[in-house]
């Protein structure tokens, strides 16, 4: 594979992973926007999405070879696992909010954060108890088709993920900007007490935010498994951190920012693979070994130089 082909492939992979980061980042940014909490468990909800899909596909539909499966069964499997991972994760998100965050809404800042870490740990080890400590691989969920035009190599899964991610993001944007409940969400995010005085049921709106955010993360989990065919109990933690970085990069609380931030992080991570090992500017073991470090370095740099993110606005801390 020549350099150009490799680069284009990396860009495509970066865009696909980036769009999955975006889907997860949306949940972070929505929750942060509305209750100013970093929902540490959000990445693990995503992981739960992959887990639900994995369990359905292997234990219920007994998938071994997608191309040998009748089309009807295949479609049923995909629709059922997509809906199941979305709905289960959405409900899980609401449950977590109800159990672990709502009782702490007026506690000191540290309390909900530590509670969120606790939820994250609990989810991870639940998954570990179910699928074990090592990564699990599934057979391809759909028959893989490759398209190739000159240096461009595309899989059908790439296209599906990109299209669905865009659809979900547009849908969410519409939900937040153009519906009644979206207006309520923005109102609560702006001023919870004033919103309550205007007749907004704050608890319901916050629960709805968790429902939507976790549902999108669950859908992201389904498409991630469709695209990469593997998952593990701690995938959500890492991916959650990248997604959070994406949310911060775009300006936390800003939906468009989270989407663009996700794509940017995906591209940067992917393109790090091009960084050579050879001197003079080489990294030991090449850029691949430094992908994660690069993301965290970006996170730290943004927070240092522009904590509001690229699209965020400066807000004074409330007294």
């Amino acid at each position: 594979m020549d350099f150009l082909t490799k680069t284009i492939r990396l860009i495509i992979e970066g865009l696909v992973t980036g769009s999955i980061y975006s889907l997860v980042a949306l949940g972070y940014t929505m929750v942060y926007g509305i209750i100013e909490l970093i929902n540490f468990a959000h990445g693990d909800i995503f992981m739960m999405g992959t887990l639900v899909t994995l369990l359905l596909v292997t234990n219920v539909f007994h998938l071994s070879n997608a191309s040998a499966m009748p089309l009807g069964n295949l479609l049923l499997m995909l629709v059922v696992s997509f809906l199941a991972s979305t709905v289960i994760c959405a409900l899980l998100g609401v449950l977590i909010e109800r159990v672990a965050y709502r009782p702490l809404r007026n506690a000191p800042r540290l309390a909900p954060l530590i509670s969120a870490i606790g939820v994250s740990l609990a989810l991870e080890d639940t998954a570990k108890a179910i699928i074990g400590p090592s990564a699990v691989t599934t057979p391809p969920l759909i028959p893989l088709v490759n398209y190739s035009w000159g240096p461009i190599l595309l899989h059908n899964t790439d296209i599906i993920v990109l299209i669905v991610a865009v659809l979900l993001m547009v849908g969410l944007q519409w939900l937040v900007t153009s519906t009644r409940i979206g207006r309520a969400m923005r109102a609560v995010a702006q001023d919870r007490e004033a919103a309550a005085l205007m007749g907004v049921n704050v608890d319901q709106v916050i629960a709805f935010t968790f429902l939507v955010g976790a549902g999108i993360a669950g859908a992201g989990g389904f498409f991630f498994l469709l695209w990469s065919n593997d998952t593990s109990f701690n995938i959500g933690f890492e991916l959650g951190l990248f997604a959070f970085t994406a949310a911060v990069l775009g300006g936390i609380g800003n939906l468009v920012g989270a989407m663009l931030g996700g794509l940017a992080i995906g591209l940067i991570r992917s393109l790090m693979a091009l960084w050579p090992e050879t001197p003079p500017f080489g990294l030991p073991h090449g850029g691949v070994s430094w992908q994660d470090a690069a993301v965290f370095a970006i996170l730290i740099l943004i927070l240092v130089f522009r904590p509001t993110g690229l699209l965020g606005q400066q807000l004074a801390e409330k007294v």
């Binding site: 159990v99 672990a100 870490i117 606790g118 609990a122 989810l123 080890d125 639940t126």
Partner: peptide, 20 residues
């Protein structure tokens, strides 16, 4: 795959939430 050592973080996670 169950073992008590494997669910260590589950226990600590629940403890953290309950304590908070």
């Amino acid at each position: 795959n169950f073992s008590f050592s494997n669910i260590r973080n589950l226990i600590f996670g629940i403890i953290l939430v309950v304590l908070m």
